[in-house]
Design a protein around this nucleic acid. Structure first.
Lengths: 195, 195, 195, 195
DNA sequence: CTCTAATCGAGACGGTACGTCGCGTCTTACG
DNA sequence: CGTAAGACGCGACGTACCGTCTCGATTAGAG
């Protein structure tokens, strides 16, 4: 049968099987666009990924683990891109980069931020950002560092989620401004005085 | 004639809270202080409430429904207390009231905001706040009303959650200031100009 | 205490409403024509009877109790009518009376014998018939009395059930003959000899 | 035949009895010896079988389905053994074989016939026997074929049940005679005439 | 005719079993 | 070997019905 031929063709991309991993991530992403995370079953993921059910558990201990994996890698990108915000070098430029990046991959981020994975995303983002905070202490702020991080991370994600949910979304440029004014500037504002 | 009287009184419209409902809410709250929502089973709730398992489903279709109920009523309190924020009459005073209230019931709010129920709380808060927004449109803002609401609601909750999680929490007075600076003032800031 | 007084009054407490009893029996019968006994719920019975749910349990401890009650009374009629069979006075006449009676109330008996109540009917019939056997021992038979009774009762009921299930049922006259040949004559046959 | 060729046979056609099925049947049988069918819960069956609760429903849709399965297979044996009765070749020999077989497995049959499974057994027996009737029509009888089958099947089962219930049961030989006289001969009797 | 007490309707409730669903483990055959 | 296929133990879910209970409303008999 053709299959025997196909066997020859079959290269060992599977070696260490990144194919499986990729397929699973892709499947999860695809499903996240349709329904909330907790309504997605492992069977659906593996079916969509064209992968055996048990194979899932060889790669990940858990459904959440896959999501965390997905989240960590994507958030990683995002974070390196926006680190300058924390360094206060050029906040406006950083938010612009952030928005441009998100806009470019809006399908992905819409799934991640509005699909029921948001909580995990937030956790992962927070984890990484707090990590970063450890390394670059900036003690002379009017608010505790971890509160600042928590605030800016969560509100950033919420604002992005709002953005991607809109039927007629504002421009990335505009959102960058909004982000900067809502999540960055309040933290940096030095004088707590009158507005 | 008696019929009309009797019927009005009798119908189970009022069917308020014949102990079961109260017991269930209390039990859920108690459990939320110990573990995350999704780890809590309906059986645990009913056992803790001293109520039959099936009875749960006579009141609520769902575990989430109970939580929503709980959230709605508590959030209702909170919202009426903080409505002046939206009316921009006296934002600082409002945040103070808010913080004082939360502090007074910090056991309750800690459970609600840090226990895994946060997502539902947020939804409920958002729902009510957006409702309120419908009734008091304030179109001359530099950002869309629903975005403003989303931002302030979610960041308020996150900040409160952070607060209640601290081993050595700042004073309500202080948190009120923080809240005002992070979640209220940025929205009200009229000039979008440079800082 | 008041109890002693109450007790005096209490005497004919239960005898209040034979209407309830009648209604329940009727409702059960009606439902038996539609579905099997175990699929009938007490709620259905009471609803059909136009009687409060709890009222059922004031009359009967059980769903089965109602059925037994129904069965016992109907079977009672049937049995008195067919006793002569056991006395062997005139078996053919007895079976004819039996069939005529069943035919006359065929709606009732169809429900009882083909509706899922058959098992209870059989038990009740057996109980009464074995009772009767106790009183009129006839030891000089080629088979044990209780086996004879069991055989004739159960096969009689089965044959009647078959009869009432037919789309185009044979005449009562004919069925009486069948009954006599299948359930009575084999028992009475004196000589066990060859045919 | 094709079957010899393939593992195709092995496929999932044979899906048959990977221990679970066997275990479940055995457990049900064991329980039937102790209590009536409707008092037996699926949990008991699975516990006794050493099988997961949900697994039960992967094999059978229902508690009754398991019983039907059990019944069908056992009745199948019985029926093939007694088919000659219907062919009227040698009725006495057939009943003897029947009784011997039942006696040999009297523990099994006692459970099946006196334990509350009798109704299902009867249904299954009837179904198979009526099937058989379809294939070997014998129209020149004084009674309708299905009535004859119904009568002999049900009374056979009742008589066997009586037998197995006795503290001091008669011999198989004797019961075969009884069976023959009560359930077979009346049907075959040619002349409907006087006795 | 009124007062009192029993009864009834309505239905909430505790409880038991059901049948379903999804997880994560494990086995088996295959390429 | 690793993978596809899928059976299995487990445990929570939500449903259905039972039999008990409480609560007003109704009604009948005693005064």
């Amino acid at each position: 049968m053709n299959q025997s031929i196909a066997k020859g063709v079959r290269n060992r991309a599977a070696r260490g099987a990144p194919r499986t991993q990729t397929a699973l991530r892709g499947a999860l992403l695809a499903l996240l666009e349709e329904q909330s995370l907790e309504r997605i079953t492992v069977r659906e993921i593996t079916a969509r990924a064209g992968v055996g059910y048990a194979t899932f558990f060889r790669r990940y201990p858990d459904k959440d683990a896959l999501l965390h994996d997905l989240a960590a890698s994507e958030i990683g990108n995002l974070l390196t891109m926006t680190l300058p915000i924390f360094h206060a070098t050029d906040t406006v430029a950083s938010t612009r980069v952030l928005c441009a990046y998100v806009w470019e991959h809006r399908a992905l981020w819409k799934a991640l931020l509005t699909g029921g994975a948001a909580a995990v995303l937030k956790d992962e983002y927070l984890r990484l950002a707090l990590n970063e905070l450890e390394r670059h202490r900036n003690p002379d702020s009017w608010l505790p560092g971890d509160l600042a991080v928590t605030f800016s991370v969560t509100s950033t994600l919420e604002i992005l989620a709002w953005w991607l949910k809109q039927g007629d979304p504002p421009s990335a440029q505009h959102m960058a401004e909004v982000l900067e004014r809502l999540t960055v500037r309040p933290i940096l504002a030095r004088d707590a005085g009158t507005r």
